[in-house]
Simulated scan of single mutants.
Amino acid sequence: MRRFIISIIFIFFFSKAHTQDYLGFGYNGVLHEDTLHIGDSIHFSFWIVNQGVNSFNDSIFINCSTYDNNGGLILSMPIGSVYNISDSILSNDSIYITITSLVSLQSFSLGDNIVVIWPASVSPANVDTSITSVHILGSSNDINELNISQPLIFPNPVSQNLYIENIEGIYSIHITTLLGEVLINKNNLNTNFFKIDVSSLSPGSYFLNLRNGKGEFVVRKIIVN
């Protein structure tokens, strides 16, 4: 594992000398929970700082790779949105970013995980690299489904409004990509009926996650057309 981390750091510092543009993380680095269960949400928060000598005028993407305790790659993909689309980041200025993703067995392994996060842009730029760890508990077989009547979800496929009935006791509803990125998140619910506008989502398949206050949940696949 030490050789794996040193290799990442070596590649980062080797590339740093080739350009004046440099995107780094703030003083606290990347913050997130240290222990989670499969089915939980992981919340990343951090500052991106322009540590170069010039203003940074390009869009910023956030990449994330997860590795198991032996250094084996689990998943590598962009997370969050595209940032700094219209504004410049002056030298030594920063932007604050928060990203929420669903913890699944597609993106994490049970036990200790290494999380590597780094910013990227279309134009060449040196970037900082965050290396943190998170411990994942439980499995899909360990998590209880809601001990209530099954929810009624319609229409499915859906193009605009998705209706969910028979959800008494539900605390939160969120819609994620198949890789676990949270796109729509509704919390503090106290109703037996809910409507979600999904017209902003691109056509494709998504997961609908219904959770109660005890951490029990139901996941259903929906199709947006």
Rank of each mutant, 00 (worst) to 15 (best):
R2A: 01
F4V: 02
I6V: 11
I8N: 07
I9D: 01
F10N: 10
F13T: 12
F13L: 13
F14V: 08
F14Q: 03
F14D: 00
S15E: 05
S15V: 05
K16S: 09
T19C: 15
Q20W: 02
D21K: 14
L23G: 03
L23Y: 01
L23A: 03
G26N: 09
Y27V: 14
G29R: 06
H32A: 08
D40E: 01
D40Q: 01
S41E: 09
I42T: 03
I42K: 11
I42A: 09
I42H: 03
F44G: 05
F44I: 03
W47R: 14
I48H: 00
N50S: 13
Q51C: 04
G52P: 10
G52K: 07
V53K: 14
N54W: 09
N54Q: 11
N57L: 14
I62M: 12
I62Q: 00
N63H: 11
S65C: 10
T66R: 10
Y83T: 03
N84T: 08
N84Y: 05
S86W: 07
D87A: 13
I89C: 08
I89L: 11
L90Q: 15
S91V: 11
S94D: 03
I95M: 13
I95D: 00
I95K: 08
T98N: 11
T100D: 07
L102G: 12
V103E: 00
Q106C: 06
S107H: 03
S109Y: 01
S109P: 00
L110Q: 15
I114T: 15
V115M: 06
V115S: 06
V116M: 12
V122I: 14
S123V: 14
S123D: 13
A125L: 05
N126Q: 08
N126C: 12
V127H: 05
D128E: 15
S130V: 01
I131G: 02
T132G: 11
T132M: 00
V134H: 07
I136D: 04
L137A: 02
L137T: 10
N141I: 10
I143Y: 04
I143M: 08
N144Q: 14
L146G: 06
S149V: 12
S149H: 14
Q150P: 12
P151E: 04
F154P: 02
F154I: 01
P157Q: 04
S159G: 03
Q160V: 02
N161T: 13
I164Y: 06
I164Q: 09
I164G: 11
E165I: 05
G169Y: 02
I170Q: 00
Y171E: 12
I173W: 02
I173K: 03
H174S: 08
H174M: 12
I175G: 04
I175E: 00
T176K: 12
L178C: 10
V182K: 15
V182E: 08
V182H: 04
I184E: 07
I184S: 04
N188D: 10
L189Y: 02
N190S: 11
T191Q: 06
T191Y: 01
N192I: 09
F193Y: 15
F194M: 07
V198Y: 01
S199E: 13
S202H: 13
S202K: 12
F207M: 10
L208R: 04
G213P: 01
F217V: 00
F217K: 06
V219I: 13
I222Y: 02
I222N: 07
V224L: 09
N225Y: 08
N225W: 01
